[in-house]
Design a protein around this nucleic acid. Structure first.
Lengths: 125, 125
DNA sequence: ACTATATATGAACATATGCTCAGATATTAA
DNA sequence: TTAATATCTGAGCATATGTTCATATATAGT
C-alpha cells in the first residue's frame, strides 16, 4: 500500500521525504495559493491573534476612539496600545484622524468586522 | 476639552490612567465581549496565524490528507506537521480517521473555509 | 518661547512559539 | 515476536512577539 518516492528535484533536493499518495500531494500543489497570498492571509490572522489587538478591533467596531481611551479600556499602557495600533495601521486595518493633539482611530472598512462576526458565530455554536 | 479622572476602583485600582472620553470608554466596556470569548476568538485566529498551520488548513479544503503527504506538500518535517496538527485538533478545527497505520486528516466543518474565503476576498480586492 | 498634553518610537527584556532531534507508541506483516 | 511503517510526543533551542521604559515628536495654550 505504501511506497517510497524521492521528492521531485525542483521541490527540495535535500529532502528524501516519504509520500504515500503522490496524486494527493500533486493535487494539493496544483490547487495551492501563491506563497505570497498565504503569507498575506497569515498576516491578517496574526493581526487578530493577540488579545490586545483583537480587543482594539472589537472596540473600534462601536465607533472611533483615541489612544488613551483605548488604553484605559484595555487596562494596558498607552505605549503598548500605540505599538499595536502601528501594526494595525501597517496592515491597513485601522486609520486615524487628528483633532488637535488627539488621534482618533477607526476601522478602515467593515471587512474585519465581518470576519470577527463569522468566527464569533462559529465559537458560540 | 481634556480632563483627568481616576479609573473606577472596580477596574484596576493600580492604574491612574488618563481618560479623555469617559463615555466612550464606558460604552466600549458595556458592549465588550466576555474576556473568555475574546480569548477563544484570539485562539481561533492564532490557529491560522502561522503559515504552516494555515497551509495545512488550506490543503485540507481540497480533501483529506495523511501526515506524510502534508509534510511533503509543505516541505517541512513530519514531526513539525504532527505538532501543528495536534494544535489544530485541540482547537477542534481538524479531525482524523485511521486506516491501518495511516491517519487521514480532514476539516471538522466548513466554518474555517468560510473564514479563509472571506479574508482572501479582502486580501485580493 | 515655554509648558503641558497626546502620541510615537527605539531598545531592552521576558515570554511565547515553532522547529529539530531523539525516542515512544500504534498498527501491520512476516 | 520481530521488523517495518506511520505517527506522536517531550525536551531543547533559536527566533518571534509583546510589553516596559526612556525619550522623541506634534499640537495647543499661555
Amino acid at each position: 500500500m505504501c511506497f517510497r518516492v524521492v521528492c521531485m528535484a525542483d521541490y527540495e533536493d535535500r529532502c528524501q521525504c516519504r509520500i504515500i499518495h503522490e496524486e494527493r500531494v500533486d493535487g494539493a500543489r496544483s490547487k495551492a495559493l501563491a506563497p505570497d497570498e498565504v503569507g498575506r492571509l497569515a498576516n491578517f490572522f496574526k493581526a487578530l491573534a493577540d488579545t490586545t489587538r483583537l480587543s482594539i478591533i472589537l472596540a473600534l467596531q462601536h465607533g472611533e476612539m483615541c489612544v488613551c481611551d483605548l488604553a484605559a479600556f484595555l487596562a494596558v499602557s498607552e505605549s503598548a496600545v500605540s505599538h499595536q495600533l502601528r501594526l494595525l495601521r501597517q496592515l491597513q486595518l485601522v486609520t486615524n484622524r487628528r483633532q488637535g493633539p488627539v488621534l482618533y482611530y477607526r476601522l478602515v472598512d467593515d471587512h474585519v468586522s465581518q470576519v470577527t462576526d463569522l468566527v464569533l458565530e462559529h465559537i458560540r455554536e
